[in-house]
Amino acid sequence: MPVTRTGSTHADVARGSENASMGSSRSGFATLLRAWRDRLSPADAGFAVTPDRRAPGLRREELAQLAGLSVDYVLRLEQGRATNPSAQVVGALARSLQLSRAERDQLYRSAGLLPPRDGTVSTHVPAGIQRLAGRLGDVPIGVFTADWTLVWWNAAWAALLGDPAVLPPSERNLARALFGSGVAHAAMTTVRSERGQDAFKASIVADLKDAVSRYPRDVQLDRLVGELRGASDAFAHHWAARTAAVQHTTDRKTIRHPEVGDILLDCDVLIVPGADLRMVTYTAATGSSDAAKLDLLRVTGVRRPVAANWPTTP
């Protein structure tokens, strides 16, 4: 490798230049965060707009709620006192602010991070999808990536299934909840599939197989599959099956809620073309007792206690 006259390699010089650039970019992170928070309409983010509202965009606590962060941490980011946010934090902020892909990449770079590479599972939720989901506030909605990681949800979803914000971002994954033994599994609400639990689990594994075939360079996806194959005999069995399982689309599920009891709901999985996302919705027939229970949850905003106390899957 060529060496400069000072004894440093060209790569060292390049790294030093890149680090200086990243350091200067980092100073703009707080400015971007504040500007994009002020730009986003509260209504588009699913919040009610009242006449006495003074903030032109999202309030700081609203952004914190959407991103699953503490208000204090968002404040420190905006004041430049927290200067090394993780990629997961930046990704959550980019989704909450409904940034375009170019803006998302700019936010990553301003934090001194490389933007997500092409060829890996995308966590980007287009602004239009967020607006659509936000305006269907009466329907519990969760948006999942190709590897079944939950990246967006509304208040109705949290009231029905528990608030995902109490979980670390890496644990907001349906496959980990079904087959793992960590906090994701401990936090999962009891849900019975009309198709049967084994068929439901097989469909999630089939989806992961499909994701691996389309994203062979995704390190995190490879790590997830390796982890579950080693930790769960059931996952390993489904993974090794030679017959193709039906991928998860539509089902009827009974959710055992600790406050309102069993709720029988239609579960529909809507594919978002061009974004490789799944929008999962839960609905009940108008006038049914199950619809009344959903209405009660929407009004009361019932929340579970800490994740470790939630009921687990059978």
Rank of each mutant, 00 (worst) to 15 (best):
D105T: 02
Y108P: 01
D138P: 06
N154C: 14
A92W: 02
A156I: 01
W153M: 03
G112D: 02
R101G: 09
P164C: 05
G162T: 01
A111L: 08
D163R: 14
E103R: 12
L161R: 05
A133M: 14
P126H: 07
A165Y: 03
I129M: 13
W148G: 04
L107C: 00
T123Q: 14
P140A: 10
E171V: 06
Q130H: 15
T149A: 04
P169A: 14
V183T: 12
D163S: 15
S86E: 11
N154A: 14
F179T: 04
G119D: 06
L167F: 14
A175P: 04
S96F: 05
H124I: 02
G137F: 13
R101L: 13
R131E: 04
P164A: 03
P126Q: 06
F179W: 10
G180Q: 07
L97R: 10
A146R: 08
A102D: 13
R95T: 09
D147G: 07
L97G: 08
L136S: 14
V90C: 11
S170C: 00
W153T: 03
V151P: 09
T149I: 01
E103S: 12
R109K: 11
G128Y: 04
H124C: 05
A92K: 02
P115K: 06
L160M: 00
G162R: 02
G137T: 13
P126V: 06
D163F: 14
R109L: 13
V191G: 03
T149G: 05
S181A: 15
W152V: 09
A186H: 10
V139L: 11
R192P: 00
T145V: 08
R135E: 12
S122G: 02
A159P: 03
S96Y: 04
T123E: 13
M188W: 12
G182K: 07
S170Q: 00
W157M: 12
W152N: 05
R172I: 03
Q106I: 06
A187H: 10
L174G: 00
A94Y: 01
A87P: 04
A186T: 10
I129P: 03
A146H: 05
G128K: 08
G142C: 10
Q88A: 15
G180R: 04
P140I: 09
W148L: 08
R109Y: 03
F144C: 06
P168M: 10
G180C: 10
S100I: 00
T145I: 06
V89E: 00
I129K: 04
Q106N: 12
L99K: 04
G128L: 11
D138T: 15
V166D: 13
Q106D: 13
T190M: 11
R117Q: 11
W148F: 12
H185G: 08
D138S: 15
T120N: 13
G137S: 15
D105W: 02
Y108T: 00
A94M: 04
T149R: 06
G128T: 09
H124Y: 10
